[in-house]
Design a protein around this nucleic acid. Structure first.
Lengths: 112, 112
DNA sequence: CATTATACCTTGAATAGCGAGGTATCTAGT
DNA sequence: ACTAGATACCTCGCTATTCAAGGTATAATG
């Protein structure tokens, strides 16, 4: 019923995850917090969103995973591949396109 | 497979429909074209998107419908109610919030 | 020794966008 | 008169996707 980040969240998780991982490799749990920070606390993706996105990006070849044991715990670090870079730039321009379309519609003074 | 307006379309149809109808009353078929025009041809909503949105907005009390016969054909004109105005401003600020969150994440110069 | 933080994960419900299909009328071309 | 296309409305079913909630296990903290 009550959603945390209601509408407008369509391809957003995928875009944010790719963008942050393009900056530097990270593991899922870290990413959850990094998203919050990078979006100025505006967008909070739960683990139930982040992990599935990570897995599907890995499956599609946009990310590669590397397991690293740290202090007895295991972390799975993700790195963006060339394919992921391409996917990121596609998503980014797609985002700009939709965004500018919406801004046009929201603007537009009374005109006729 | 091929989607016309891929990701990033979450609450968008509802927002656009409300925004355009707030400017002036319109009927569904007209709205389909108006959306294309208002978004600079960037966003094209099919009738399969517009009509259901119209109906659900009417059901929720955000719009009122008026049937008007024109040249033997029937047009259903939609008008935004006070409730619809409120919904529009909620959606608009929600959009700005998500949008600015994403822009923050996309920006963030290389730093490292 | 118990609670919190770290770190991974899956399942199930609900939403919603979209293509495709369906009906019917009016208009324009041939 | 016939056809094709534009106008104008509508629904169905597929698919994708977000998210809360729940589940496991280890390390650190009190």
């Amino acid at each position: 019923m009550s959603k945390s980040n209601p509408p407008f969240m369509s391809g957003v998780p995928e875009l944010l995850v790719l963008r942050l991982l393009a900056r530097q490799e990270m593991y899922g749990y870290e990413l959850v917090k990094a998203v919050r920070a990078a979006t100025g606390e505006e967008i909070a993706l739960g683990e139930g969103v982040v992990y599935p996105v990570l897995h599907s990006l890995e499956t599609s070849g946009a990310l590669t995973a590397t397991r690293k044991p740290v202090n007895g715990r295991t972390r799975v670090y993700y790195t963006v591949t060339a394919k992921g870079q391409k996917r990121l730039s596609t998503l980014t321009s797609e985002w700009q396109r939709i965004r500018s379309g919406i801004e046009s519609a929201l603007g537009e003074a009374g005109h006729v």
